[in-house]
Design a protein around this nucleic acid. Structure first.
Length: 293
DNA sequence: CGCATCCCCTGCCTGC
DNA sequence: TGCAGGCAGGGGATGC
């Protein structure tokens, strides 16, 4: 469940259950996900109270009353679900399919409120870490990270400074978390379409010789903000039957203009040209060859 | 240095 | 129906 809107949606789903809760039991079922868990992971968490559940880019950050923060990244296939005594008896309550899927339940957090928050991740590209809350912004995960795309620091002037002279295509630059942190393949494709910008345009070509942003770059920053805001409002995108923590489905995937829509007509009024797919840095790019220049 | 490629892992879909 | 190949929302390590 990975890009910023999906992680933000997960955060909002987990916050009511985790914020203010004390972890009475933590079960770590394997030694590693993408990386090894930190030493004594479960022990350092047990008994801790979660004061706040935040988000930085695609990371969830739970600030604890122990002076540490629990950092969680969902990789490509990570998801959380919440199980409570009540959810088992409520009519119409949602339940994840049992069986083989449970083989990928890697971590269970039990709260003093009686909830089980279960982390499931088939591909195991996600990871968890414990880091001192003080100086969190300079820790190894966040130290080199770029600005939040929904924050005030993300604007055309900032991007111009980071893209000036860069030869990499704009698609790659937007995926680079050291420049902007939180965008992934879907929302980069969608933002470029909204900005009518070719994914193959050289980053530096969007900056004037005097270092000022071009109009295209201004438009791109707005498109990034807008597509993220729209996606968050829709509860994120639900691909391959993933669900949010409370069992509901995001629905922004129905609003994709280009992502995973190769061969369909460009939805822009009066266009209709076939959406194409190309591969950039090993990843699919979807775009309209007519209206993205 | 910047940039592209490969790789980690499992599951699902396609085509033969 | 089985099987091989390709692809997937991420990002770290390598090599040019």
């Amino acid at each position: 469940m990975p890009e910023l809107p999906e992680v933000e949606t997960v955060r909002r789903g987990l916050a009511p259950v985790l914020e203010g809760a004390r972890l009475v039991r933590v079960e770590q079922r394997r030694a590693d996900l993408r990386f090894q868990f930190p030493p004594r992971f479960a022990k350092r968490l047990t008994g801790a109270r979660i004061e706040r559940l935040g988000r930085r880019a695609k990371y969830l950050v739970a600030d604890l009353d122990t002076g540490e923060s629990l950092i969680m990244h969902l990789g490509m296939s990570g998801s959380f679900r919440i199980e409570t005594d009540a959810s088992a008896t409520q009519p119409g309550a949602f339940h994840m399919p049992r069986g083989k899927d449970q083989a990928h339940d890697h971590v269970v957090f039990a709260t003093d409120g009686g909830a089980h928050v279960i982390y499931n991740d088939p591909r195991r590209f996600g990871f968890m870490d414990l880091v001192a809350t003080e100086g969190l912004e300079t820790c190894k995960h966040f130290g080199a990270m770029g600005v939040e795309p929904l924050g005030n620091a993300f604007n055309a002037d900032y991007l111009a400074g980071r893209l000036k002279g860069k030869k990499a295509p704009i698609k790659a630059a937007l995926l680079d978390q050291r420049i902007v942190a939180g965008l992934g393949n879907i929302y980069v494709c969608e933002a470029l379409w909204r900005a009518r910008l070719s994914p193959e345009r050289t980053s530096g070509s969007l900056v004037r010789a005097n270092g000022r942003p071009t109009e295209k770059l201004e438009k791109l920053t707005g498109a990034v903000r807008d597509v993220l805001a729209d996606a968050i409002a829709a509860g994120g995108s639900t691909l391959r039957d993933h669900r949010q923590a409370d069992g509901t489905l995001g629905y922004f995937q129905h609003s994709f203009s280009v992502y995973d829509r190769k061969g369909t007509g460009c939805p822009r009024e009066g266009c209709g040209v076939e959406i194409r797919r190309l591969v950039q840095s090993g990843r699919s790019t979807f775009f309209c060859p007519r209206c993205q220049r």
